[in-house]
Design a protein around this nucleic acid. Structure first.
Length: 484
RNA sequence: CGGGGUGUGGUGUAACGGCUAACAUUCUGGUUUUGGGUACCAGCGACUCUGGGUUCGAAUCCCAGCACCCCGACCA
């Protein structure tokens, strides 16, 4: 290679520290994950982005099914009157629903709402499915798109239409329902930490932040690289609110009619936004190996034409070795690109490990493997490469999780007075502070600082103290942060 | 819906009110190269967001509209 020193090629990606928002969009664009569509607020998910979603689907689906959940599909359109049956639910969603008023040029007698979530249409059906306690628990999940006409959108984090899974369960006792809500939250936590390499803080939402119609909302909150919080997934204990609104009743062992107890829980394409914002750097996307559609890219290095067959043969055999071992590998054999261009290309796409194989490597019996997360070069024996690579991938996975954990630890602070509180929120910290438990205080803090109570974490100990804002008595600390 | 900003080839930018709207990159064809963005040749590609106005003359100045971006309110 020549002229490398003379020619400076500009990195097309904005520096993360300079403008986080622009950096985020650059990463998505350069990695080929998604683009905005002609319809404002909607998003085209490109193959590379969708491949990540497919991995999410597969992993979660398996976990759900292991707990007895079955998949089903309910319609996109919901009769408007369904939505209005549960009072809090309609108040929560009315401002953001899209309504179908016409079919062709004919006006509909009854307007149809494009689902913002499927509680209502599912529960109307559930009420006919459930007769006896022997029909319970009912455990249903669906993978679907939903539409919420938000005022402001952002790639993956908030789009007008988005993809998600929504699970809906019905139980005979409140305890069992709550247990299920907690169980699903734990599945999300496990998935987030062990697959996405994103540590989360689990807890309960406050009254004003909970889901419209829920008794109690559990949440996984996580911290992005700019320090802001993102609600990653939620699980709701719906109590018997919807059961009463939709008349979901059953006969118990004593032949008495009872209202059922329900849960719903969901994870959306927003989690891909969390994935991007958690690990990526100034060179583009960084994917944890377990979430990477391509875990290893093999770049053949062919300095002389007569080396080609030999190199490609070796490349192919490494590829086969890895594939047989269950590693998602790809050979980049495009001959119109230089190796340098290929390196940059796959870096921006977030591929965790790059393997370079050329005549020198073949002569030495070792090839080069470069980690995406820290740039480390490893020399790996051709023999036993499958295990070595697997080990490297698992190290990358662990490193990404650890980095994210350290980030949360370093940026979470305990605060007991208002000045420090304001300062901490201003610098995008997670703030653990006492709160008097009132909506008024919560609202005023939000008004003054932009911070919301992300959750009352399960992990906090009971502790007497004074509310950081009002000075009133408080029994526990809660998590405050600015959020997406 | 409030506050701010920006609209020029696919992308990123340039052009004092004045010549055929410039440069880089991408893209197409070719030659050459291949261990971190090779080099060169040729080519495609823009009624400068829309509509008015000022002017001998507008990408440039003025007015209106529209679009997009950022910051808030709303939210997964």
């Amino acid at each position: 290679m020549k002229n490398n020193d003379e020619k400076e090629v500009q990195n097309p990606i904005t520096k993360r520290d300079e403008d986080f928002s622009e950096w985020y969009h650059d990463v998505i664009k350069e990695a080929g994950l998604a683009e905005y569509s002609p319809v404002k607020g909607c998003m085209v998910i490109l193959p590379h982005g969708y491949a990540i979603w497919e991995i999410i689907q597969k992993v979660l689906d398996d976990k759900f099914k292991a707990t007895g959940v079955e998949n089903a599909y309910f319609p996109l359109f919901i009769p408007e009157k369904f939505l209005t049956k549960e009072k809090d639910h309609v108040e929560g969603f009315a401002p953001e629903v899209a309504v179908v008023t016409h079919a062709g040029d004919k006006e509909l007698e009854e307007k149809l709402v494009v689902r913002p979530t499927s509680e209502t249409i599912m529960y109307d059906t559930f009420s006919r499915w459930i007769r006896s306690y022997r029909d319970l628990p009912l455990l249903i999940n669906q993978w679907a798109n939903v539409v919420r006409w938000e005022m402001r959108t952002r790639m993956f984090l908030r789009t007008t239409e988005f993809l998600w899974q929504e699970g809906h369960t019905v139980h005979s006792t409140q305890e069992e329902a709550d247990e299920r809500a907690r169980m699903m939250l734990d599945i999300y936590r496990d998935f987030s930490e062990n697959f996405m390499a994103i540590p989360v803080i689990t807890g309960v939402k406050t009254e004003s932040e909970k889901f419209a119609g829920a008794l109690r909302t559990y949440t996984c909150e996580t911290m992005m690289q700019d320090g802001k919080a993102l609600q990653y997934a939620t699980s709701h204990n719906l109590g018997d609110n919807f059961a009463k609104a939709f008349d979901i009743t059953f006969l118990d062992e004593n032949n008495e009619t009872k209202h059922a107890w329900q849960t719903s829980w969901g994870l959306s394409t927003r989690s891909i936004g969390a994935l991007i914002m958690s690990h990526s750097d100034d060179s583009g996307l960084v994917l944890p190996p377990k979430m990477a559609p391509i875990q290893v890219v093999i770049v053949p290095v062919i300095p002389k034409e007569w080396d080609k067959d030999m190199v490609m043969e070796e490349v192919k055999s490494v590829y086969d070795l890895l594939s047989d071992y269950g590693i998602r590998a790809k050979i980049d054999d495009r001959d119109f690109l230089s190796v340098g261009e290929k390196y940059y290309h796959w870096e921006r796409k977030g591929v965790p490990l790059r393997i370079e194989i050329g005549p020198k490597d073949i002569a030495n019996g070792k090839f080069v493997a470069v980690r995406r997360d820290n740039g480390d070069k490893n020399r790996i024996d051709f023999s036993g490469a499958d295990e070595s690579v697997k080990k490297l991938l698992s190290e990358i996975q662990d490193t990404l999780l650890k980095n994210a954990q350290d980030r949360i630890k370093e940026n979470t602070i305990f605060v007991d007075n208002w000045d420090e509180f304001e300062k901490a929120i201003e610098s995008n910290k997670f703030v653990m502070a006492h709160w008097d438990g009132t909506k008024e205080t919560e609202d005023e803090i939000k008004e003054k600082t932009g911070a919301t109570i992300r959750c009352v974490p399960f992990s906090v100990e009971e502790e007497k103290g004074k509310c950081v804002y009002s000075g009133k008595e408080s029994g526990t600390r809660v998590l405050f942060a600015k959020a997406y």
